[in-house]
């Protein structure tokens, strides 16, 4: 395992990402990872607080488009995340907090797809969230916060 991680990190691509003396390598990839974060978590939280009753005059149906922004953000962050991981595979891959982050994101994705099916799956979305939708909204709120927290802590926890 560690041998594999080391080979990833020392691959041409891994070395380019981590050490190419250009702003377009590590800095830009890391920046895009933050743009993607905002595109995923921002719309997710807007939908979550609406489902939990805030801004009730806003038709939930109007937020259907949020998922398109979230998926674009997710595509950006999966791609940039893989690139960032390869560049520091031998470090990040051995950190428990990295696997906590991945687990949190996996759970958040499950919750998000279930939320979409529950709220938008059958015709026009209802403006009153069912108890199930509210539970999923709460889970989404905390899981995305957890993913951000674990991601940030990757720079600090050995």
């Amino acid at each position: 395992m560690e041998d594999f991680l080391l080979r990833l990190q020392e691959s041409d691509f891994g070395v380019w990402v981590s050490s190419a003396p250009t702003i377009f390598a590590y800095p830009t990839i890391l920046m895009l990872h933050t743009v993607g974060l905002a595109m995923i978590v921002g719309p997710a939280w807007v939908l979550d607080v609406r489902l939990l009753g805030y801004g009730a005059r806003l038709p939930v149906e109007a937020l259907r488009g949020a998922f398109r922004i979230m998926w674009i953000g997710f595509f950006i962050n999966a791609s940039t995340g893989i690139a960032l991981f390869i560049s520091e595979a031998d470090d990040k891959g051995l950190k428990w907090i990295f696997w906590v982050k991945l687990l949190t994101i996996a759970l958040a994705l499950v919750v998000t797809t279930r939320l979409r099916r529950t709220v938008f799956g059958s015709g026009v979305a209802s403006d009153v969230a069912t108890p199930k939708a509210r539970t999923l909204a709460k889970a989404s709120l905390f899981l995305w916060l957890g993913a951000i927290t674990a991601g940030r802590l990757m720079a600090y926890i050995k």
Binding site: A38, G42, W45
Partner: peptide, 17 residues
């Protein structure tokens, strides 16, 4: 830092909408 990243997501999500 964690709060700063959560805050940016909230700000950009709502203002962006």
């Amino acid at each position: 830092e964690t709060i700063h990243f959560a805050g940016l997501a909230l700000l950009l999500g709502v203002a962006g909408m």
